[in-house]
Simulated scan of single mutants.
Amino acid sequence: MDDLTLLKVQDLEIAVRIWNPQAPRTLVAWHGLARHGGDFEALAHRLGPQWRIIAPDTPGRGLSSWSPTPEQHYLYNHYMTIALAVLDHFNLDSVPWVGTSMGGLLGMRLASDAEHAGRIERLMLNDVGPALNPDALIHMGQYFAQPYQFNQLSELEKELRDNYASFGIQSDRTWAEMTRDSARRLPDGSWSFHYDPRIAEQFIHDTPRDNWADWLAIDCPLMLLRGANSALLDRETADRMSREQPSMVSLEAEGCGHAPMLDRTSQVEPLRQFLEG
């Protein structure tokens, strides 16, 4: 990243990663459940100096604060509060939004909200939609709720490679960078992941919602990138999304599951065309 902004939102510090801070155009990029804003570095480099990328770390992840009360802060309603605070801080009245998984659902909520829909100028969803495979959700909730501990950094990298194989990462350098950005030291010198295991409590505390109603309410330009091998977003759901929003741009990422890293020309160039309208 080229810059880092730290915001205080309801006693939690929110880290916002920024690339190309002087660029004439701005894109907000929001990560998935157990990731952080650093995942968009490759996208920032591929989009180039015309685009400022603003990528927050959601509380409990990356460089942002962990919450002492997850039942209050690890919820979509609170993420909405944070998103609006980020947009206000950077004086963004209306901005394109790219959301991977959880970040896409957050973008959907903003884009369908009667009061705030105008803040999202156009919305790109990265392997997420109004309905998600329940077995995949159960697996994610169970996996990320576990406290991981590794004696060596190489063990952490192996676990990353196994769990995120569906990202479609193709280079050892990218895995090494992901390992560096995903690790934190524990007091005894061992290693764990960057995120608070209690983020998985979101599945317990968050209020069920009619995401299809949100989907129908969205009025901005839409794009969907689905991992061709996605375990989370079924092709049937993607087809229904297209039927209910027929102007949506649809793309499948070959060789990827959940969720594409937005680090290849075949993914980024269609996104560039969508962003430039």
Rank of each mutant, 00 (worst) to 15 (best):
A176Q: 15
K158E: 15
L110V: 09
Y148R: 15
G103F: 06
N163H: 10
A111P: 02
S182N: 03
S166M: 14
L87V: 12
G107R: 12
R109A: 04
M108Y: 01
F150M: 09
L160R: 15
A176G: 02
L186A: 10
T100C: 01
R185T: 08
D172E: 04
H78K: 10
L106C: 09
D181M: 06
D88G: 07
L92M: 03
Q146Y: 15
L87D: 00
I138E: 13
A183V: 14
V128A: 02
M140Y: 14
T174M: 01
L186N: 15
R180S: 12
M178I: 07
L186V: 13
L123N: 12
A145D: 01
D135H: 07
W175L: 06
L153S: 10
D127C: 08
L110S: 02
S94A: 06
G168V: 03
M178N: 07
M178Y: 00
G99Q: 00
Y79P: 04
S112W: 06
A136P: 05
A114P: 09
T81V: 14
L106N: 06
G118V: 05
A85Y: 02
N133Q: 06
L87I: 11
T174P: 01
D127H: 00
M124C: 04
A111D: 05
R180Y: 08
M80Y: 10
I82A: 00
E71S: 11
L153K: 05
R109M: 00
D135G: 12
N151E: 15
L123H: 02
T81H: 10
N77L: 12
L160H: 13
I169G: 08
V95F: 03
G103K: 00
G118W: 13
A165V: 13
D127E: 00
G168S: 10
Y74N: 02
S182T: 07
M80L: 08
P187T: 10
D127N: 01
T179I: 12
A83L: 06
N163R: 14
A145K: 03
M80P: 09
A176C: 00
R185A: 03
R122E: 02
G107F: 12
E155G: 01
A183L: 12
A145C: 07
T81R: 12
A176R: 06
L160P: 03
V128N: 06
L87G: 04
T174D: 07
A183D: 08
R185M: 12
E157C: 05
M102A: 14
T174C: 02
